[in-house]
Amino acid sequence: MLGMLVCLPPKKTITFLLTVLLLTPLAQANLLLHCEVTYAGSTQVIETGPVADPYPVQSIDIGGRFWFKPVMVGEGNRVDYVKLYAYLDAQKQPLLLQEAIYRPPFPAATTPHPLTGEQHLYGGALERELIYSCTLQGVQP
């Protein structure tokens, strides 16, 4: 590729470099974890990209009853793993209902790639129901 740059006139070289710089973040930005979380008939769409450090990722309040935390660790178009956490919002502290871990290789399938299927979780004295499903976009097998 550098040989090509040397052969290009200066104006085209600059245009080429600017194009590459502008398109590079788009190529990395297409890796996406898309989750639909439903509680009490209301659905929230939660989307997240890859992170290097999973610990600062915040849990998301779902209807004041549950917390949901999707974490995708990776870089660029590479996914090291996906972890999904679902908590019941209890009096003293949130109670972990489920921790799901997904590791590569992810099969070469359609985009978006179905990851979880539809999950149904129940918690609390009244057995409230949390439903979620997640897909991956832009993942390379």
Rank of each mutant, 00 (worst) to 15 (best):
Leu115Ile: 03
Leu5Met: 13
Pro112Val: 08
Lys12Cys: 03
Thr111Asp: 15
Pro114Val: 04
Lys69Thr: 07
Leu5Pro: 05
Lys83Asn: 12
Leu136Trp: 02
Ala40Gln: 13
Leu126Lys: 15
Val20Cys: 09
Gln140Thr: 15
Lys69Glu: 04
Gly3His: 09
Ala52Thr: 10
Leu21Lys: 00
Gly124Arg: 01
Leu136Ile: 11
Thr24Gln: 03
Thr19Ser: 01
Leu26Ile: 06
Ser59Asp: 13
Tyr122Asp: 07
Pro25Gly: 11
Phe106Arg: 04
Leu2Thr: 14
Arg103Lys: 11
Leu17Ile: 08
Ala108Tyr: 05
Ala100Ile: 05
Gly41Leu: 08
Met72Ala: 05
Asn30Gly: 01
Thr116Gly: 06
Leu136Cys: 01
Glu75Lys: 14
Gly3Asp: 13
Pro141Tyr: 08
Val57Thr: 14
Ile60Asn: 06
Tyr39Trp: 13
Met4Asp: 11
Ile14Met: 00
Phe66Trp: 00
Gln119Phe: 03
Val51Glu: 05
Tyr87Lys: 01
Cys134Thr: 11
Glu129Ile: 12
Cys134His: 03
Pro70Thr: 10
Pro105Gly: 02
Cys134Met: 01
Thr110Ala: 14
Thr116Arg: 02
Asp89Gln: 15
Ala29Pro: 06
Leu97Ala: 05
Met1Thr: 14
Lys83His: 09
Pro56Ser: 04
Asp80Pro: 03
His113Thr: 15
Leu17Ala: 05
His120Val: 06
Leu95His: 11
Gly124Thr: 10
Ala125Cys: 05
Thr135Val: 14
Thr135Met: 10
Val51Tyr: 01
